[in-house]
Nucleic acid binder design. Sequence first.
DNA 1: TCGCGTTCGTGATACCTTCTAACGAAGCGG
DNA 2: CCGCTTCGTTAGAAGGTATCACGAACGCGA
Lengths: 237, 237
Amino acid sequence: MSKPDTQTPRGRYRAQVREEVKRHAWEQIAAAGASALSLNAIAKQMGMSGPALYRYFASRDELITELIRDAYRSLADTFRARARADAGSKAGAGADLGDLAHALRGWALDDPQRYFLIYGTPVPGYRAPEDTTRTASEIMAVILDACAAAPAGSPGSPASPAEKLPTTHPSPFDAHLDAHRAWAGPHPAPSSALHRALLFWTRLHGVLSLELAGHFAGMGFDPAQLYTAEAEAVMGR
Amino acid sequence: MSKPDTQTPRGRYRAQVREEVKRHAWEQIAAAGASALSLNAIAKQMGMSGPALYRYFASRDELITELIRDAYRSLADTFRARARADAGSKAGAGADLGDLAHALRGWALDDPQRYFLIYGTPVPGYRAPEDTTRTASEIMAVILDACAAAPAGSPGSPASPAEKLPTTHPSPFDAHLDAHRAWAGPHPAPSSALHRALLFWTRLHGVLSLELAGHFAGMGFDPAQLYTAEAEAVMGR
DNA sequence: TCGCGTTCGTGATACCTTCTAACGAAGCGG
DNA sequence: CCGCTTCGTTAGAAGGTATCACGAACGCGA
């Protein structure tokens, strides 16, 4: 670190090579998963000998960590772009939850292994670097903003025929969240919005990860419809 | 295959060694993840030389496949045991969904890497053997039975103050499920029960996998409370 | 009880991986 | 133009999967 020198010619070349290494790495991961990623194979593809790559990445783990970082940033960028677009077209300060859900699914389908690099099987010893957890917080912040801006209603599922009432009776978990809302920072959202943000995250991840992992294969129904049904349930529609 | 000879002395010995290999394999996986599993290290732990293990498992992949098979069977057994216990204590034919949810979480927390071996990051090329997909169907069947036996109500979240009405208006996804219910087999459950079974699966997996992967770490709230809140939302309570 | 065939465990070997070390070549900056 | 830094190379250690050939152990039938 402390070497993102994009001014000097060497710095530019270095950044360029690092980028090409990561490009090949993503291809390998998409083809055979992260565990099959091989620095040697990447070097061969780039016409270099194996150890040369160690000038650019200290280890295989550092390369993977860098890919995870990029994956987080890519998702955060996607969310922020969606939020900014929605902020222009409608009144509320946050993004529309439905648009966010759609953007998330598109981003995940675009490169499933990239999704799993973030939300897939954790490596027991691995400790995420501080900046990726910060990016994760940014992602959550976009969701939280959208939930705070959304019309209040009982999150979860199609409301009763009597439409969504403004008087949402607080669940036990809402009360628990009221006492543990440090993760939301100084956000002024009510605990019901916090709850809704968590549901957005967990429910959509539930459908998406099972779909991407192929667990719905052969079941016949369309995962996209289940996904949007869950998204609308979260929005209280 | 065709060699589960538990009659002959050699067959017994063989089964015993295979079992010990798998025991060490689970320990390694719990400690460092499935990708770090090493046949050589297992052999060394057992006081044998590396290639000896190839008498018992054709390859590292076959060992992992066997572990996946055992993981599926373990989960199916856990569910079936719960269903049988509930069948004895109450009237309905299926298990109580709340009990099933509780059993699932206990099983997952008991060995998170075992959970991820089933529901974690998929390996792009991997094709699950036919018998594990059959076991997966059995698992789904237990959930489906429980959903069919559960009182009908709007699945999703705390119903409106007007309690759960028996007249559940069908969602668009319910209609879609009506046309694609082949995966439920000849089960006579209404499509709303099929929908509820899917929600049980996806929502609980959503919370559970994020918790096990550590994504809630440092957020302060209790994942168990979010989990049970989602379980009750699925049950329509 | 004695053989004989099957099975088991071994060491040697080939090939792959990550990663370190030493060396020579190239480039950039003063 | 000279010198320091950086880059890419080869060599090699350590460890992984997997195959092979060989000798020893075992069990079953005679």
